[in-house]
Design a protein around this nucleic acid. Structure first.
Lengths: 191, 191
DNA sequence: CGATTGACCGTTTTAGTCATTTGGTCATTT
DNA sequence: AAATGACCAAATGACTAAAACGGTCAATCG
């Protein structure tokens, strides 16, 4: 059996997108890294956009897998939430692609990169939404719109991890977890 | 008494910054609108940046005034919070300068425009912070870091008003107010 | 004969250029 | 003394030739 060219192409593309972003990745380069003729790419993917989509789907799939690995239905909702968000953040930091895409959106505003980030966000919200629904069913948290709640959780998490450090010393994981709990779980109303 | 040229220049600059943004505003244009020689501007402001700063300070001052108008110490904290945030949002939407600066940041990423937006945010957080501190002192809300709490409130408000509508039908003011209360005041912990 | 390739094509991006415009100065005018 | 606008060095952006791009396909390979 000959080498799996599709696999070679996907690996090369993943590497290149992560290293140079969407715009910075050329089909010639992918072909070169994959040790494959440029035409071969087009027998598996009809264009650059579709190739990028494949890489994004794999990334999101892997994120889901990583998250699921850490969730324990026996644990409390907020404990799981913190673990998952941490895991995702670590994963995201590890995985250069997400970072590179964020950079690209900020620096040159590449549409495709923005779409990529949006896809990741959507997947994360979708995942949290499931967890919220389960927690509501178990009576662990109040009845609420799971989608909206998931959205609020992600935004708050991002505000505490990403936005805050734009003008303050960054918060460590423990503190972020504390704050998430403080604001969302207990609320500000006095006892 | 001769005409107040400083005033003329400030009015002209405010109009021009609001109409054309920071980059799009030229000193020649400001001079022309103000019916003043260009050199005159430099007797009052040592450069374009300083002129812009003056306009920003006035904008922020006006925002504070507008916010203070609506706050009633007799009312509950969350009622005041909603009123103030609504007022500020309306103000921001109404006031062309803030819009223009946001556009400019997104479209060409002008540093000075970014600084301007940042200044506005900082002023808003600062103002909410005061209100939070007062509410904590009155025992209306739990003891908490007022700065962090103000930050979280603004971010959550922005997420609900600005971010949410990027991929969903926008929420009306009443709903936003409900949600802010629901998540921050009562919390998700079951009764 | 189907799978693979890279030379090739029309289009877009880039780098380099220079005339124009800009923020800022200051000798002159009011 | 206050105000002005001609003037200057520096920044800008319109222009273009050259390079690089995504995508195709006739020739090649196994």
């Amino acid at each position: 059996m000959s080498i799996d060219r599709r696999r070679l192409i996907i690996d090369a593309a993943a590497k290149s997108f992560a290293l140079f972003g969407y715009k910075g990745t050329t089909m010639d380069q992918v072909a070169k890294i994959a040790n494959v003729g440029k035409g071969t790419i087009y027998t598996f993917f009809s264009n650059k956009e579709e190739l990028f989509q494949e890489i994004m789907n794999r990334l999101i799939g892997e994120m889901k897998r990583v998250a699921e690995e850490v969730v324990d239905p026996g644990r409390k909702f907020f404990d799981n939430l913190n673990l998952v968000l941490d895991q995702l953040l670590d994963f995201r930091e590890e995985h250069e692609l997400a970072i590179k895409l964020s950079q690209e959106v900020k620096e040159i505003g590449t549409q495709m990169a923005q779409d990529g980030i949006y896809q990741i966000e959507k997947a994360v919200v979708g995942y949290i939404q499931q967890q919220v629904q389960a927690a509501v069913d178990k009576g662990e948290i109040k009845p609420c719109d799971p989608k909206m709640t998931a959205f609020v959780m992600l935004k708050l998490f991002m505000a505490l991890t990403a936005d805050w450090k734009k003008s303050h010393p960054p918060l460590d994981k423990t503190r972020v977890a504390e704050l998430l709990r403080f604001y969302l779980q207990e609320g500000l109303a006095p006892d």
